[in-house]
């Protein structure tokens, strides 16, 4: 049977200390910074390549209808929109201002951030999906004039089938999992926030 003072003595005499030296800490700081920078760098490169290819197609390929050019512009817009959102989320989560907030305020921030991510992954993705579908439809006008009828019909059927599979199978599953995960996070955050509530 121990009292709190004995428990405190036990705590203060404990052996396990952090097994991380200051030098190892500095190494990790350098590594961490370059890992994030590398990730952002390669994402930027991938987006840049995608945009350059689409712009090159606009300039170098002589499409016969204006709808194809509009389709390419929509595609470029979608890629840029996705990239800007990812970038802004990276910046938001590493924003140091919130780290110094009181725990209740920080939990509130995390909750808002999670809800924003959820909207981006679900509602904004639907808009993104619609835009891509419109771009393909506009490109279909070009294909209609360029391809034999049955090849055109085959391509259209395949694209529609692929969109339906993505929307009704993959996206439904993804949205369901994502909602469940974020709901659980928000429930946890709510519970912890309640523990820090100060009635005074």
């Amino acid at each position: 049977m121990k009292g709190f003072d004995e428990i405190q003595q036990l705590w203060q005499g404990q052996a396990p200390d952090p097994n991380v030296s200051f030098e190892a800490m500095l190494m990790r700081i350098k590594g961490n910074r370059s890992a994030l920078a590398r990730k952002l760098f390669w994402q930027s490169i991938a987006v840049g390549i995608g945009v350059v290819i689409l712009l090159w197609m606009c300039v170098a390929v002589d499409f016969s209808t204006w709808t194809t050019y509009l389709a390419l512009v929509i595609m470029i817009g979608c890629i840029c929109y996705y990239f800007v959102n990812q970038l802004s989320d990276y910046r938001a989560i590493s924003n140091s201002h919130h780290l110094l907030s009181k725990p209740q305020d920080y939990i509130n921030y995390l909750k808002v951030f999670q809800q924003r991510r959820n909207r981006f992954n679900t509602r904004s993705y639907t808009v993104y999906e619609i835009c891509i579908a419109i771009a393909f439809a506009l490109y279909g006008v070009e294909m209609y004039f360029a391809l034999p009828l049955w090849t055109f019909v085959g391509a259209i059927v395949f694209i529609i089938f692929w969109f339906l599979i993505c929307h009704f199978v993959f996206m439904k599953q993804y949205i369901h999992n994502e909602n469940a995960r974020i709901e659980e996070m928000i429930d946890n955050l709510e519970r912890i926030k309640g523990q820090f509530y100060d009635p005074n």
């Binding site: 140091s96 919130h98 780290l99 110094l100 907030s101 009181k102 725990p103 920080y106 939990i107 995390l110 999670q114 996070m185 946890n188 955050l189 912890i192």
Partner: peptide
């Protein structure tokens, strides 16, 4: 941001607490 703060340890603890809270997240 810490340079003008007299209580460094408070801010370090605050960051540690928030880091722990987001760990459970």
């Amino acid at each position: 941001k810490f340079r003008n703060q007299s209580q460094f340890s408070t801010w370090i603890y605050r960051i540690a607490v928030n880091t722990c809270l987001s760990y459970l997240r």
